[in-house]
Design a protein around this nucleic acid. Structure first.
Length: 604
DNA sequence: GCCGTTTTCGGCCCGACTGTTTTCAGTCG
Protein backbone atom coordinates (compact mmCIF):
# COMPACT_ATOMS: atom_id res chain seq x y z
CA UNK A 1 0.00 0.00 0.00
CA UNK A 2 1.15 3.48 -0.71
CA UNK A 3 1.36 6.10 1.99
CA UNK A 4 -2.36 6.77 1.85
CA UNK A 5 -3.29 3.14 1.39
CA UNK A 6 -5.27 2.49 4.53
CA UNK A 7 -9.02 2.43 4.12
CA UNK A 8 -9.38 4.47 7.33
CA UNK A 9 -8.72 7.84 5.73
CA UNK A 10 -11.24 7.22 2.96
CA UNK A 11 -13.87 5.91 5.36
CA UNK A 12 -13.32 8.83 7.73
CA UNK A 13 -13.84 11.23 4.83
CA UNK A 14 -17.13 9.53 3.91
CA UNK A 15 -18.35 9.66 7.51
CA UNK A 16 -17.44 13.34 7.70
CA UNK A 17 -19.25 14.01 4.44
CA UNK A 18 -22.29 12.18 5.76
CA UNK A 19 -22.20 14.20 8.98
CA UNK A 20 -22.04 17.47 7.05
CA UNK A 21 -24.83 16.48 4.68
CA UNK A 22 -26.96 15.42 7.66
CA UNK A 23 -26.34 18.80 9.26
CA UNK A 24 -27.30 20.64 6.08
CA UNK A 25 -30.45 18.58 5.65
CA UNK A 26 -31.46 19.58 9.16
CA UNK A 27 -30.87 16.22 10.80
CA UNK A 28 -30.56 15.61 14.52
CA UNK A 29 -27.49 17.56 15.66
CA UNK A 30 -26.52 14.81 18.09
CA UNK A 31 -26.48 12.30 15.29
CA UNK A 32 -24.30 14.68 13.32
CA UNK A 33 -21.89 14.84 16.19
CA UNK A 34 -21.87 11.06 16.49
CA UNK A 35 -20.74 10.71 12.88
CA UNK A 36 -18.09 13.40 13.28
CA UNK A 37 -16.76 11.62 16.31
CA UNK A 38 -16.78 8.24 14.59
CA UNK A 39 -14.89 9.76 11.65
CA UNK A 40 -12.18 11.01 13.98
CA UNK A 41 -11.98 7.67 15.76
CA UNK A 42 -11.66 5.78 12.46
CA UNK A 43 -8.98 8.14 11.17
CA UNK A 44 -7.00 7.63 14.35
CA UNK A 45 -7.55 3.89 14.70
CA UNK A 46 -4.36 1.81 14.57
CA UNK A 47 -5.78 -1.03 12.46
CA UNK A 48 -6.95 -0.85 8.87
CA UNK A 49 -10.75 -0.90 9.12
CA UNK A 50 -10.94 -2.79 5.84
CA UNK A 51 -9.63 -5.85 7.65
CA UNK A 52 -11.99 -5.71 10.66
CA UNK A 53 -15.15 -7.72 11.17
CA UNK A 54 -18.40 -6.41 12.61
CA UNK A 55 -17.40 -6.98 16.22
CA UNK A 56 -13.96 -5.46 15.85
CA UNK A 57 -15.46 -2.41 14.17
CA UNK A 58 -17.85 -1.90 17.08
CA UNK A 59 -14.87 -1.89 19.43
CA UNK A 60 -13.85 1.43 17.90
CA UNK A 61 -15.04 4.18 20.29
CA UNK A 62 -18.14 5.86 18.92
CA UNK A 63 -18.88 3.09 16.41
CA UNK A 64 -21.98 1.02 17.01
CA UNK A 65 -24.05 -1.33 14.88
CA UNK A 66 -25.28 1.25 12.43
CA UNK A 67 -21.97 2.93 11.74
CA UNK A 68 -20.14 -0.39 11.62
CA UNK A 69 -22.44 -1.50 8.82
CA UNK A 70 -21.79 1.73 6.95
CA UNK A 71 -18.03 1.27 7.33
CA UNK A 72 -18.26 -2.23 5.90
CA UNK A 73 -20.25 -0.96 2.93
CA UNK A 74 -17.75 1.86 2.46
CA UNK A 75 -14.90 -0.66 2.40
CA UNK A 76 -16.54 -3.08 0.00
CA UNK A 77 -18.25 -0.76 -2.45
CA UNK A 78 -16.79 2.65 -1.71
CA UNK A 79 -19.92 4.22 -0.23
CA UNK A 80 -23.09 3.45 1.71
CA UNK A 81 -26.79 3.81 0.89
CA UNK A 82 -27.66 6.60 3.32
CA UNK A 83 -24.80 8.69 1.99
CA UNK A 84 -25.85 8.07 -1.59
CA UNK A 85 -29.37 9.23 -0.74
CA UNK A 86 -28.17 12.47 0.80
CA UNK A 87 -25.80 13.08 -2.10
CA UNK A 88 -28.78 12.79 -4.41
CA UNK A 89 -30.66 15.41 -2.40
CA UNK A 90 -27.90 17.92 -1.75
CA UNK A 91 -25.55 19.04 -4.51
CA UNK A 92 -21.86 18.76 -3.65
CA UNK A 93 -21.51 22.51 -4.11
CA UNK A 94 -23.77 23.18 -1.16
CA UNK A 95 -21.39 21.28 1.09
CA UNK A 96 -18.54 23.37 -0.31
CA UNK A 97 -20.32 26.45 1.08
CA UNK A 98 -19.42 25.26 4.59
CA UNK A 99 -15.84 26.20 3.79
CA UNK A 100 -16.77 29.87 3.79
CA UNK A 101 -16.22 31.40 7.25
CA UNK A 102 -19.57 32.57 8.52
CA UNK A 103 -21.53 29.89 6.69
CA UNK A 104 -22.62 26.82 8.60
CA UNK A 105 -25.13 24.11 7.83
CA UNK A 106 -28.20 26.20 8.64
CA UNK A 107 -27.37 29.08 6.38
CA UNK A 108 -26.09 26.78 3.62
CA UNK A 109 -29.43 24.99 3.62
CA UNK A 110 -31.29 28.27 3.63
CA UNK A 111 -29.29 29.51 0.65
CA UNK A 112 -29.96 26.28 -1.20
CA UNK A 113 -33.67 26.07 -0.39
CA UNK A 114 -34.62 29.68 -0.83
CA UNK A 115 -32.21 31.00 -3.44
CA UNK A 116 -31.32 27.80 -5.28
CA UNK A 117 -27.64 28.29 -4.62
CA UNK A 118 -25.74 25.06 -5.31
CA UNK A 119 -22.12 26.18 -5.54
CA UNK A 120 -19.59 28.77 -4.50
CA UNK A 121 -19.87 30.61 -7.86
CA UNK A 122 -23.67 30.71 -7.35
CA UNK A 123 -23.07 32.33 -3.98
CA UNK A 124 -20.69 34.88 -5.41
CA UNK A 125 -23.25 35.78 -8.07
CA UNK A 126 -26.06 36.06 -5.52
CA UNK A 127 -23.89 38.26 -3.33
CA UNK A 128 -23.12 40.46 -6.33
CA UNK A 129 -26.82 40.81 -7.06
CA UNK A 130 -27.59 41.58 -3.39
CA UNK A 131 -30.05 38.72 -3.25
CA UNK A 132 -29.02 37.55 0.23
CA UNK A 133 -30.18 40.66 2.03
CA UNK A 134 -33.80 39.73 1.46
CA UNK A 135 -33.51 36.44 3.38
CA UNK A 136 -34.67 36.28 6.99
CA UNK A 137 -31.68 36.27 9.29
CA UNK A 138 -29.41 37.73 6.65
CA UNK A 139 -28.55 41.39 6.36
CA UNK A 140 -26.18 43.75 4.63
CA UNK A 141 -23.41 43.24 7.15
CA UNK A 142 -23.47 39.46 6.96
CA UNK A 143 -23.48 39.63 3.16
CA UNK A 144 -20.50 41.93 3.25
CA UNK A 145 -18.71 39.60 5.65
CA UNK A 146 -19.24 36.65 3.32
CA UNK A 147 -18.12 38.65 0.29
CA UNK A 148 -14.96 39.62 2.15
CA UNK A 149 -14.31 36.09 3.44
CA UNK A 150 -14.53 34.61 -0.05
CA UNK A 151 -12.14 37.21 -1.44
CA UNK A 152 -9.70 36.59 1.43
CA UNK A 153 -9.80 32.86 0.96
CA UNK A 154 -8.93 33.17 -2.70
CA UNK A 155 -5.72 35.05 -2.05
CA UNK A 156 -4.60 33.65 1.30
CA UNK A 157 -2.65 30.43 1.45
CA UNK A 158 -3.89 27.60 3.60
CA UNK A 159 -1.99 26.37 6.64
CA UNK A 160 1.40 27.79 7.56
CA UNK A 161 4.46 25.80 8.65
CA UNK A 162 5.05 25.50 12.37
CA UNK A 163 8.38 27.37 12.24
CA UNK A 164 6.89 30.45 10.61
CA UNK A 165 3.91 30.34 12.97
CA UNK A 166 6.22 30.26 15.96
CA UNK A 167 8.19 33.28 14.76
CA UNK A 168 4.99 35.24 14.12
CA UNK A 169 3.59 34.32 17.51
CA UNK A 170 6.79 35.34 19.27
CA UNK A 171 6.76 38.73 17.54
CA UNK A 172 3.14 39.37 18.50
CA UNK A 173 3.65 38.25 22.09
CA UNK A 174 6.74 40.44 22.44
CA UNK A 175 4.80 43.38 21.08
CA UNK A 176 2.01 42.84 23.62
CA UNK A 177 4.47 42.48 26.49
CA UNK A 178 6.17 45.69 25.42
CA UNK A 179 3.02 47.78 25.12
CA UNK A 180 0.56 46.54 27.74
CA UNK A 181 0.60 45.34 31.36
CA UNK A 182 0.87 41.62 30.68
CA UNK A 183 1.21 39.17 33.57
CA UNK A 184 1.66 36.09 31.36
CA UNK A 185 1.47 35.51 27.63
CA UNK A 186 1.81 32.34 25.64
CA UNK A 187 0.93 30.83 22.30
CA UNK A 188 -1.63 28.07 22.69
CA UNK A 189 -3.63 26.09 20.13
CA UNK A 190 -2.04 23.83 17.56
CA UNK A 191 1.17 25.81 17.95
CA UNK A 192 1.56 24.68 21.55
CA UNK A 193 0.69 21.15 20.51
CA UNK A 194 3.46 21.42 17.90
CA UNK A 195 1.28 20.42 14.97
CA UNK A 196 3.44 20.41 11.81
CA UNK A 197 1.30 23.11 10.26
CA UNK A 198 -0.94 25.68 11.89
CA UNK A 199 -4.18 27.12 10.55
CA UNK A 200 -4.28 30.20 12.72
CA UNK A 201 -2.51 31.48 15.81
CA UNK A 202 -4.03 31.33 19.27
CA UNK A 203 -2.53 33.70 21.81
CA UNK A 204 -3.41 33.77 25.49
CA UNK A 205 -2.72 36.67 27.83
CA UNK A 206 -3.29 36.98 31.56
CA UNK A 207 -3.65 40.57 32.68
CA UNK A 208 -5.46 42.85 35.08
CA UNK A 209 -5.97 45.36 32.27
CA UNK A 210 -7.84 43.54 29.49
CA UNK A 211 -8.81 46.69 27.55
CA UNK A 212 -5.22 47.83 27.21
CA UNK A 213 -4.12 44.44 25.94
CA UNK A 214 -7.00 44.16 23.49
CA UNK A 215 -6.34 47.70 22.27
CA UNK A 216 -2.73 46.96 21.52
CA UNK A 217 -3.58 43.62 19.92
CA UNK A 218 -6.11 45.17 17.55
CA UNK A 219 -3.94 48.13 16.60
CA UNK A 220 -0.47 46.58 16.57
CA UNK A 221 1.90 47.06 13.64
CA UNK A 222 1.26 43.62 12.14
CA UNK A 223 -2.53 43.98 11.99
CA UNK A 224 -4.23 44.41 8.64
CA UNK A 225 -7.80 43.97 9.77
CA UNK A 226 -9.84 43.35 12.91
CA UNK A 227 -12.21 40.41 12.42
CA UNK A 228 -13.84 40.40 15.84
CA UNK A 229 -13.40 42.27 19.07
CA UNK A 230 -14.88 41.66 22.47
CA UNK A 231 -13.87 42.15 26.08
CA UNK A 232 -12.20 38.75 26.40
CA UNK A 233 -11.72 37.58 22.86
CA UNK A 234 -10.55 39.21 19.64
CA UNK A 235 -9.43 38.12 16.18
CA UNK A 236 -7.30 39.92 13.64
CA UNK A 237 -5.78 39.16 10.29
CA UNK A 238 -2.13 40.11 9.93
CA UNK A 239 -0.56 41.65 6.87
CA UNK A 240 0.77 38.17 6.05
CA UNK A 241 -2.83 37.00 5.86
CA UNK A 242 -2.66 34.91 9.03
CA UNK A 243 -5.62 34.92 11.40
CA UNK A 244 -4.67 35.45 15.04
CA UNK A 245 -7.07 34.89 17.92
CA UNK A 246 -6.42 36.50 21.28
CA UNK A 247 -7.96 35.38 24.54
CA UNK A 248 -7.58 37.64 27.57
CA UNK A 249 -8.14 36.28 31.07
CA UNK A 250 -7.60 37.18 34.72
CA UNK A 251 -4.37 35.71 36.12
CA UNK A 252 -6.12 33.41 38.64
CA UNK A 253 -7.67 31.33 35.84
CA UNK A 254 -4.53 31.11 33.71
CA UNK A 255 -4.29 27.31 33.88
CA UNK A 256 -7.91 26.74 32.91
CA UNK A 257 -7.64 29.18 30.03
CA UNK A 258 -4.38 27.66 28.81
CA UNK A 259 -5.90 24.19 28.94
CA UNK A 260 -8.99 25.33 27.08
CA UNK A 261 -7.13 27.34 24.46
CA UNK A 262 -4.49 24.68 23.81
CA UNK A 263 -7.02 22.05 22.80
CA UNK A 264 -7.33 20.00 20.84
CA UNK A 265 -11.03 20.41 20.67
CA UNK A 266 -11.51 16.66 20.91
CA UNK A 267 -9.27 16.53 23.99
CA UNK A 268 -11.26 19.34 25.63
CA UNK A 269 -14.56 17.67 24.96
CA UNK A 270 -13.34 14.50 26.64
CA UNK A 271 -12.15 16.44 29.69
CA UNK A 272 -15.48 18.21 29.99
CA UNK A 273 -17.36 14.95 29.79
CA UNK A 274 -15.12 13.64 32.54
CA UNK A 275 -15.89 16.70 34.66
CA UNK A 276 -19.57 16.29 34.02
CA UNK A 277 -19.57 12.77 35.43
CA UNK A 278 -18.39 14.22 38.73
CA UNK A 279 -21.10 16.84 38.74
CA UNK A 280 -18.60 19.49 37.72
CA UNK A 281 -18.25 21.88 34.82
CA UNK A 282 -15.00 22.62 33.04
CA UNK A 283 -14.59 25.83 31.08
CA UNK A 284 -11.87 28.37 30.39
CA UNK A 285 -12.71 29.84 33.80
CA UNK A 286 -11.91 26.72 35.73
CA UNK A 287 -13.30 23.53 37.12
CA UNK A 288 -16.49 24.28 39.04
CA UNK A 289 -18.87 22.31 41.18
CA UNK A 290 -22.22 22.63 39.44
CA UNK A 291 -24.21 22.51 42.66
CA UNK A 292 -22.27 24.90 44.85
CA UNK A 293 -20.70 26.97 42.09
CA UNK A 294 -17.45 26.64 43.94
CA UNK A 295 -14.28 26.81 41.87
CA UNK A 296 -12.30 23.61 42.38
CA UNK A 297 -9.23 24.36 40.26
CA UNK A 298 -8.16 27.02 37.77
CA UNK A 299 -4.68 28.39 38.40
CA UNK A 300 -2.63 25.67 36.73
CA UNK A 301 -3.24 22.95 34.18
CA UNK A 302 -1.73 20.37 36.50
CA UNK A 303 -4.23 21.00 39.30
CA UNK A 304 -7.14 20.69 36.91
CA UNK A 305 -5.88 17.41 35.52
CA UNK A 306 -5.20 16.20 39.02
CA UNK A 307 -8.70 17.04 40.19
CA UNK A 308 -10.04 15.08 37.23
CA UNK A 309 -7.95 12.12 38.33
CA UNK A 310 -5.38 12.51 35.57
CA UNK A 311 -1.68 13.06 35.38
CA UNK A 312 -0.70 16.25 33.57
CA UNK A 313 -0.73 15.51 29.85
CA UNK A 314 1.92 17.14 27.65
CA UNK A 315 0.40 19.36 24.93
CA UNK A 316 1.98 17.21 22.21
CA UNK A 317 -0.30 14.33 23.24
CA UNK A 318 -3.58 16.25 23.50
CA UNK A 319 -5.33 14.85 20.44
CA UNK A 320 -7.73 12.36 22.04
CA UNK A 321 -5.66 9.46 20.79
CA UNK A 322 -5.80 7.53 24.03
CA UNK A 323 -3.86 9.98 26.20
CA UNK A 324 -6.76 10.56 28.59
CA UNK A 325 -7.21 6.86 29.29
CA UNK A 326 -3.45 6.51 29.71
CA UNK A 327 -3.30 9.46 32.10
CA UNK A 328 -6.18 8.07 34.14
CA UNK A 329 -4.36 4.79 34.62
CA UNK A 330 -0.95 6.38 35.07
CA UNK A 331 0.22 4.79 31.85
CA UNK A 332 1.39 7.90 30.00
CA UNK A 333 4.56 7.00 28.12
CA UNK A 334 7.92 8.40 29.08
CA UNK A 335 8.39 10.67 26.06
CA UNK A 336 11.69 11.60 24.51
CA UNK A 337 12.64 15.12 25.64
CA UNK A 338 15.08 17.67 24.34
CA UNK A 339 17.35 16.98 27.30
CA UNK A 340 17.67 13.34 26.24
CA UNK A 341 19.44 14.22 23.01
CA UNK A 342 23.21 13.91 23.13
CA UNK A 343 24.06 15.10 19.66
CA UNK A 344 23.11 15.88 16.10
CA UNK A 345 23.62 13.33 13.33
CA UNK A 346 22.91 15.32 10.15
CA UNK A 347 24.67 18.66 9.52
CA UNK A 348 26.31 20.50 6.64
CA UNK A 349 29.22 22.91 6.30
CA UNK A 350 30.36 25.34 3.67
CA UNK A 351 32.24 22.46 2.04
CA UNK A 352 28.90 21.92 0.28
CA UNK A 353 25.75 23.97 0.72
CA UNK A 354 26.10 25.00 4.36
CA UNK A 355 27.15 28.52 5.22
CA UNK A 356 29.38 27.90 8.26
CA UNK A 357 32.90 26.50 8.32
CA UNK A 358 33.56 23.13 9.90
CA UNK A 359 35.31 24.66 12.91
CA UNK A 360 32.39 27.02 13.50
CA UNK A 361 29.85 24.22 13.34
CA UNK A 362 31.86 22.15 15.79
CA UNK A 363 32.23 25.04 18.20
CA UNK A 364 28.51 25.78 17.97
CA UNK A 365 27.60 22.16 18.64
CA UNK A 366 29.90 22.07 21.62
CA UNK A 367 28.45 25.31 22.94
CA UNK A 368 25.03 23.61 22.83
CA UNK A 369 26.33 20.82 25.01
CA UNK A 370 26.38 18.11 22.34
CA UNK A 371 28.44 15.05 23.23
CA UNK A 372 28.76 14.12 19.59
CA UNK A 373 28.23 15.67 16.18
CA UNK A 374 28.10 14.08 12.75
CA UNK A 375 29.16 16.24 9.81
CA UNK A 376 27.38 14.93 6.74
CA UNK A 377 28.07 17.05 3.70
CA UNK A 378 26.42 16.18 0.40
CA UNK A 379 28.04 13.42 -1.67
CA UNK A 380 28.95 14.12 -5.33
CA UNK A 381 25.84 12.83 -7.10
CA UNK A 382 24.19 16.04 -6.04
CA UNK A 383 26.30 17.68 -8.73
CA UNK A 384 25.74 21.30 -7.76
CA UNK A 385 27.62 20.67 -4.53
CA UNK A 386 30.89 19.74 -6.27
CA UNK A 387 32.01 17.63 -3.37
CA UNK A 388 34.74 15.12 -4.21
CA UNK A 389 36.51 12.23 -2.60
CA UNK A 390 39.56 14.45 -2.15
CA UNK A 391 37.55 17.16 -0.43
CA UNK A 392 35.92 14.56 1.79
CA UNK A 393 39.30 13.20 2.83
CA UNK A 394 40.63 16.69 3.52
CA UNK A 395 37.54 17.45 5.60
CA UNK A 396 38.06 14.25 7.53
CA UNK A 397 41.61 15.20 8.40
CA UNK A 398 40.51 18.61 9.62
CA UNK A 399 37.72 17.03 11.62
CA UNK A 400 40.03 14.57 13.36
CA UNK A 401 42.31 17.45 14.30
CA UNK A 402 39.39 19.45 15.67
CA UNK A 403 38.20 16.50 17.68
CA UNK A 404 41.56 16.12 19.35
CA UNK A 405 41.53 19.79 20.27
CA UNK A 406 37.89 20.29 21.08
CA UNK A 407 36.76 17.47 23.32
CA UNK A 408 33.53 16.76 21.43
CA UNK A 409 33.19 13.44 19.63
CA UNK A 410 33.05 14.14 15.92
CA UNK A 411 31.74 11.69 13.35
CA UNK A 412 32.77 12.06 9.77
CA UNK A 413 29.78 11.36 7.62
CA UNK A 414 28.12 12.18 4.36
CA UNK A 415 24.61 12.60 3.04
CA UNK A 416 24.40 10.23 0.10
CA UNK A 417 21.97 10.60 -2.75
CA UNK A 418 19.67 7.71 -3.44
CA UNK A 419 19.47 7.34 -7.23
CA UNK A 420 16.24 6.46 -8.97
CA UNK A 421 17.25 2.78 -8.86
CA UNK A 422 18.32 2.93 -5.21
CA UNK A 423 22.02 3.27 -5.96
CA UNK A 424 24.35 5.39 -3.82
CA UNK A 425 27.36 7.64 -4.29
CA UNK A 426 30.91 6.27 -4.12
CA UNK A 427 32.10 2.68 -3.98
CA UNK A 428 31.49 0.41 -1.04
CA UNK A 429 35.12 0.46 0.03
CA UNK A 430 35.13 4.24 0.38
CA UNK A 431 31.71 4.26 1.99
CA UNK A 432 33.06 1.90 4.65
CA UNK A 433 35.56 4.55 5.73
CA UNK A 434 32.85 6.93 7.00
CA UNK A 435 31.65 6.97 10.61
CA UNK A 436 28.03 7.66 9.70
CA UNK A 437 26.09 7.76 6.44
CA UNK A 438 22.73 9.34 5.82
CA UNK A 439 21.05 8.41 2.55
CA UNK A 440 18.34 10.68 1.13
CA UNK A 441 16.22 11.23 -1.95
CA UNK A 442 17.02 14.50 -3.71
CA UNK A 443 15.74 13.75 -7.20
CA UNK A 444 13.13 11.78 -9.17
CA UNK A 445 10.42 12.55 -6.61
CA UNK A 446 7.69 11.50 -9.00
CA UNK A 447 8.42 7.77 -9.30
CA UNK A 448 5.49 5.41 -9.13
CA UNK A 449 4.97 4.07 -5.59
CA UNK A 450 6.22 0.60 -6.55
CA UNK A 451 9.46 1.96 -8.00
CA UNK A 452 9.89 4.38 -5.09
CA UNK A 453 9.42 1.53 -2.63
CA UNK A 454 12.08 -0.62 -4.36
CA UNK A 455 14.41 2.36 -4.40
CA UNK A 456 14.05 3.12 -0.69
CA UNK A 457 14.16 -0.51 0.40
CA UNK A 458 17.40 -1.00 -1.54
CA UNK A 459 18.89 2.09 0.12
CA UNK A 460 17.96 1.18 3.69
CA UNK A 461 19.23 -2.36 3.15
CA UNK A 462 22.65 -1.16 2.02
CA UNK A 463 25.03 -2.21 4.80
CA UNK A 464 26.85 1.13 4.82
CA UNK A 465 23.72 3.24 5.36
CA UNK A 466 22.88 4.17 8.95
CA UNK A 467 20.06 6.66 8.52
CA UNK A 468 17.39 7.25 5.89
CA UNK A 469 17.32 11.07 5.63
CA UNK A 470 14.06 13.06 5.40
CA UNK A 471 12.29 9.89 4.26
CA UNK A 472 9.32 11.42 2.42
CA UNK A 473 11.16 14.43 0.97
CA UNK A 474 8.25 16.72 1.66
CA UNK A 475 8.69 20.45 2.06
CA UNK A 476 5.75 22.07 3.76
CA UNK A 477 3.70 24.15 1.39
CA UNK A 478 6.00 23.41 -1.56
CA UNK A 479 6.61 19.74 -2.18
CA UNK A 480 4.33 16.85 -1.28
CA UNK A 481 5.70 13.68 0.31
CA UNK A 482 6.79 10.97 -2.11
CA UNK A 483 4.48 7.99 -2.28
CA UNK A 484 5.75 4.60 -1.20
CA UNK A 485 4.70 1.48 0.67
CA UNK A 486 5.42 2.58 4.21
CA UNK A 487 5.14 -0.88 5.70
CA UNK A 488 7.66 -2.30 3.24
CA UNK A 489 10.20 0.50 3.67
CA UNK A 490 9.84 0.94 7.43
CA UNK A 491 9.88 -2.82 7.94
CA UNK A 492 13.01 -3.17 5.83
CA UNK A 493 14.69 -0.38 7.79
CA UNK A 494 13.81 -2.06 11.08
CA UNK A 495 15.21 -5.41 9.93
CA UNK A 496 18.35 -3.87 8.47
CA UNK A 497 19.08 -1.78 11.54
CA UNK A 498 18.84 1.46 9.59
CA UNK A 499 17.43 4.39 11.53
CA UNK A 500 14.74 6.64 10.06
CA UNK A 501 15.37 10.32 10.32
CA UNK A 502 13.05 12.70 12.05
CA UNK A 503 14.29 15.76 10.22
CA UNK A 504 13.77 18.70 12.56
CA UNK A 505 14.13 21.41 9.96
CA UNK A 506 10.88 23.35 10.45
CA UNK A 507 9.99 23.36 6.76
CA UNK A 508 10.42 19.59 6.57
CA UNK A 509 9.36 17.87 9.82
CA UNK A 510 9.95 14.61 8.02
CA UNK A 511 9.00 12.06 9.22
CA UNK A 512 5.92 13.63 10.75
CA UNK A 513 4.07 12.18 13.72
CA UNK A 514 1.71 10.02 11.68
CA UNK A 515 4.59 8.40 9.78
CA UNK A 516 6.64 7.99 12.95
CA UNK A 517 3.79 6.03 14.47
CA UNK A 518 3.69 3.70 11.51
CA UNK A 519 7.45 3.27 11.53
CA UNK A 520 7.51 2.66 15.28
CA UNK A 521 4.88 -0.02 14.83
CA UNK A 522 7.14 -1.62 12.24
CA UNK A 523 9.90 -1.73 14.84
CA UNK A 524 12.14 0.99 13.46
CA UNK A 525 14.51 3.25 15.39
CA UNK A 526 14.95 6.95 14.72
CA UNK A 527 17.49 9.74 14.55
CA UNK A 528 16.28 13.24 15.44
CA UNK A 529 18.52 15.52 13.39
CA UNK A 530 18.53 19.15 12.37
CA UNK A 531 19.96 18.92 8.82
CA UNK A 532 21.60 22.20 9.83
CA UNK A 533 23.00 24.34 7.04
CA UNK A 534 23.87 27.23 9.37
CA UNK A 535 24.83 27.64 13.02
CA UNK A 536 21.36 28.73 14.08
CA UNK A 537 19.78 25.65 12.54
CA UNK A 538 21.37 23.58 15.28
CA UNK A 539 18.64 24.99 17.53
CA UNK A 540 15.88 23.23 15.61
CA UNK A 541 16.08 19.94 17.51
CA UNK A 542 12.95 20.74 19.59
CA UNK A 543 10.86 20.53 16.42
CA UNK A 544 12.02 16.98 15.85
CA UNK A 545 11.50 16.10 19.50
CA UNK A 546 7.95 17.43 19.22
CA UNK A 547 7.17 15.20 16.22
CA UNK A 548 8.52 12.23 18.17
CA UNK A 549 6.43 13.12 21.20
CA UNK A 550 3.32 13.47 19.08
CA UNK A 551 3.97 9.89 18.02
CA UNK A 552 4.34 8.77 21.67
CA UNK A 553 8.01 7.92 21.11
CA UNK A 554 10.28 7.21 24.06
CA UNK A 555 14.01 7.98 24.22
CA UNK A 556 15.06 4.38 23.81
CA UNK A 557 13.89 4.40 20.19
CA UNK A 558 15.99 7.46 19.34
CA UNK A 559 19.61 6.62 18.57
CA UNK A 560 20.98 10.06 19.37
CA UNK A 561 19.77 9.77 22.95
CA UNK A 562 22.10 6.81 23.34
CA UNK A 563 25.40 7.07 25.17
CA UNK A 564 28.33 6.81 22.82
CA UNK A 565 29.21 3.12 23.33
CA UNK A 566 25.70 2.06 22.36
CA UNK A 567 25.56 4.41 19.41
CA UNK A 568 28.99 3.18 18.33
CA UNK A 569 27.67 -0.35 18.35
CA UNK A 570 24.74 0.69 16.19
CA UNK A 571 27.01 2.47 13.72
CA UNK A 572 29.26 -0.57 13.47
CA UNK A 573 26.33 -2.49 12.04
CA UNK A 574 27.20 -5.21 9.63
CA UNK A 575 30.82 -4.34 9.43
CA UNK A 576 32.12 -6.86 11.93
CA UNK A 577 29.91 -9.65 10.68
CA UNK A 578 29.52 -8.97 7.00
CA UNK A 579 25.78 -8.45 7.02
CA UNK A 580 23.25 -6.19 8.66
CA UNK A 581 20.88 -8.88 9.78
CA UNK A 582 23.43 -10.52 12.06
CA UNK A 583 23.91 -7.41 14.11
CA UNK A 584 21.81 -6.95 17.21
CA UNK A 585 24.13 -4.53 18.94
CA UNK A 586 22.62 -1.15 19.31
CA UNK A 587 19.09 -2.28 18.57
CA UNK A 588 16.64 -1.05 21.15
CA UNK A 589 15.46 -3.21 23.94
CA UNK A 590 11.90 -4.26 23.36
CA UNK A 591 10.26 -1.17 24.76
CA UNK A 592 6.52 -1.42 24.41
CA UNK A 593 5.31 1.05 21.86
CA UNK A 594 2.03 2.86 22.22
CA UNK A 595 0.29 -0.02 20.51
CA UNK A 596 1.50 -2.63 22.96
CA UNK A 597 1.13 -1.01 26.37
CA UNK A 598 -2.48 -1.92 26.69
CA UNK A 599 -3.34 1.73 26.26
CA UNK A 600 -5.75 2.64 23.53
CA UNK A 601 -3.17 3.08 20.86
CA UNK A 602 -2.64 6.21 18.85
CA UNK A 603 -2.98 5.72 15.12
CA UNK A 604 -0.17 3.81 13.51
C1' DG B 1 -26.44 7.26 16.52
C1' DC B 2 -24.00 6.03 20.68
C1' DC B 3 -23.64 4.80 25.38
C1' DG B 4 -23.71 3.79 30.80
C1' DT B 5 -19.75 4.93 38.74
C1' DT B 6 -27.29 8.93 38.31
C1' DT B 7 -28.08 4.39 32.65
C1' DT B 8 -31.02 0.02 27.98
C1' DC B 9 -33.69 5.66 27.98
C1' DG B 10 -32.47 10.12 27.94
C1' DG B 11 -29.15 12.45 27.69
C1' DC B 12 -25.20 14.18 24.57
C1' DC B 13 -19.13 20.32 26.27
C1' DC B 14 -18.90 25.24 27.05
C1' DG B 15 -18.64 30.01 26.17
C1' DA B 16 -17.72 34.27 23.05
C1' DC B 17 -18.90 37.13 19.29
C1' DT B 18 -21.76 38.82 15.36
C1' DG B 19 -25.75 40.26 13.31
C1' DT B 20 -30.32 40.54 13.22
C1' DT B 21 -33.07 40.86 16.45
C1' DT B 22 -35.93 42.94 20.85
C1' DT B 23 -34.23 37.84 23.44
C1' DC B 24 -31.67 34.85 20.26
C1' DA B 25 -29.81 31.86 16.32
C1' DG B 26 -25.79 30.75 13.96
C1' DT B 27 -21.07 30.07 13.86
C1' DC B 28 -16.67 29.29 15.75
C1' DG B 29 -13.02 27.35 18.49
Amino acid sequence: MAAAGRANEHVAELLTEYAELCAISGGDPFRVRTYEKAARAVAGYPDDVAGLDERALQAIPGVGRSIAAKIRAACTRGSFDELDDLRAQIPAGVRALLGVPGLGPKRAKQLHDELGITSLPDLVAALGAHRLESLPGFGARLAERLRHAIAQRQQAGSRIPLGLARRLADELLDDLRGHAPVVAAEAAGSLRRWCPTVGDLDLLVATGAPEAVTDRFCTGPAVAEVLARGPTRSSVRTRHGVQVDLRVVEPPVWGAALLYFTGSKAHNVRLRQLAQRHGWKLSEYGLEDLETGRRLAAATEAEIYERLGLRWIPPTLREDRGEIEAAAEDRLPRLVEIGDLRGDLHTHTNATDGVAALAEMVAAARARGHEYLAVTDHAPLLHVQRFTREKAEAQRAELRALEAADGIRLLHGSELNIGAEGTLDWDDAFLATFDLLVASVHSAFGLEPEAMTRRLVRAVEHPAVHVLGHPTGRILGRRPPVAFDTEAVFGAAARAGTALEINAYPDRLDLDDEMIRRAAAAGAVFAISTDAHALGHLDHLPYGVAMAQRAWLGPDRVINTWAWPRLAGFLAKGRAHGGPTTLAAGRPSAQPGPGTTGAPAPPV
